[in-house]
Design a protein around this nucleic acid. Sequence first.
DNA 1: CCATAATAGAGAAAATTTTATTGATAATGA
DNA 2: TCATTATCAATAAAATTTTCTCTATTATGG
Lengths: 233, 233
Amino acid sequence: MKTKPYKAVPEPTLRRLPLYHRFLKDLRAVHREFVSCTDIGLELDLDPTQIRKDLESVGVVGRPRIGYVLADVINGLEAFLGWKNVNDAFLVGAGSMGSALLGYRKFEQCGLKIVAAFDLDPSKIGTQIHGKHVLPLSKLTDLARRMHILIGIITVPAMEAQGVADLMVAGGIRAIWNFAPVRLRVADQVIVHNEDLYCSLAALSQKLFKPLQSAAPQRQAKAKRPGVAAPAA
Amino acid sequence: MKTKPYKAVPEPTLRRLPLYHRFLKDLRAVHREFVSCTDIGLELDLDPTQIRKDLESVGVVGRPRIGYVLADVINGLEAFLGWKNVNDAFLVGAGSMGSALLGYRKFEQCGLKIVAAFDLDPSKIGTQIHGKHVLPLSKLTDLARRMHILIGIITVPAMEAQGVADLMVAGGIRAIWNFAPVRLRVADQVIVHNEDLYCSLAALSQKLFKPLQSAAPQRQAKAKRPGVAAPAA
DNA sequence: CCATAATAGAGAAAATTTTATTGATAATGA
DNA sequence: TCATTATCAATAAAATTTTCTCTATTATGG
């Protein structure tokens, strides 16, 4: 029994798994029983071999010429991703992004249930947003500890994020989903997952204008700029 | 003459550049003149060598023992990321996520100005959200074409996303920032950037529970003959 | 029953990205 | 001045991730 303790599934794989899960649920809805990597690859425009490797990481097995049993894959994905049982989470920052996240009902199907929100603003405290109570930030640490909350979501302005993170860690929170554009400093054993929209935006806009400004290395100050008004001729 | 036409800067690099930019602006605010990769690495907890490579991609050069001229790096980053001139964008889906994005004022410092929002809901049309007009979706394509809009943001429910994307492409939009949890099918020359929170969440929760469930995967003895009667699909 | 074709599985190869190594350069201080 | 040291730059190595190749398996159709 060479049980390799854990072999660190690559992050790119982790991020593809929900795509598979979503598509497979669609297939289940139309009563498909089997699915092949070819099917998935065609739908998601991914290499079938890569999908096969990803599913191998998850631990599901298929049969030649048939593919995978649909129910097995869905089941395996949910087990692997920890979506079988729901974890309670606290959200801090009842602003517009926080409110948006509080409204994401599907999170509960993905193992995440936001049970309460916290804020400093007295006009928000005591209200409900999408059915979730907004509590004063001062109660965060104590409540997190008493309720054994493991996941915290930060949607406060950048300047306040570190302070909130400290409160979360003090309350025993083990994973932080951080929407504030700052790098948090936390104890080693705490997982921080940054959702930095500015970083995403950078990737997008750079790709959009890549062909126009690409030849820019070195300090030549100016590359030829054909101008945005004249795209691919 | 090593004019490499364009050498495809890796996506991981692209996503780190805004982190540098942010920190460097902080340094500028306190009137620093020079910065070394060591400085940046210490702040962001990244390998200085990696930062040096990233900055090389951007095209800025430094001097031994001194580091980089702060203004040069900031300037170089902004030029490279296309943040020097602002691009107008349309947002479709004036729900809670859409509203949140409409409120992100800092986007304009990153080359993105959302100039209008679109929706189907008559109760939203005609209103303003964070100072941006909400227009009927039916006007999207025509307006996008007339205003030469290149960037579209999708914050509608999954089911409506493909339709919106089609309208955007018809209006000449070249890059789509997609917050809906679906894979969009668009013409090849259109860039789609998916901001799939469920995929992020998967990475987070799997990491959090990795040590607990890790020993499960891997080959569960070759299923020689699963003996499953296989009704054809 | 056999030939064919679709597909999983395993491992090798290739590509990409990160990390390490080495040498050159220039500021600092003795 | 000269040794020392911090740093960039370039290259090499390592690690990671993707893609390819090949084999074995098993429905399907003749």
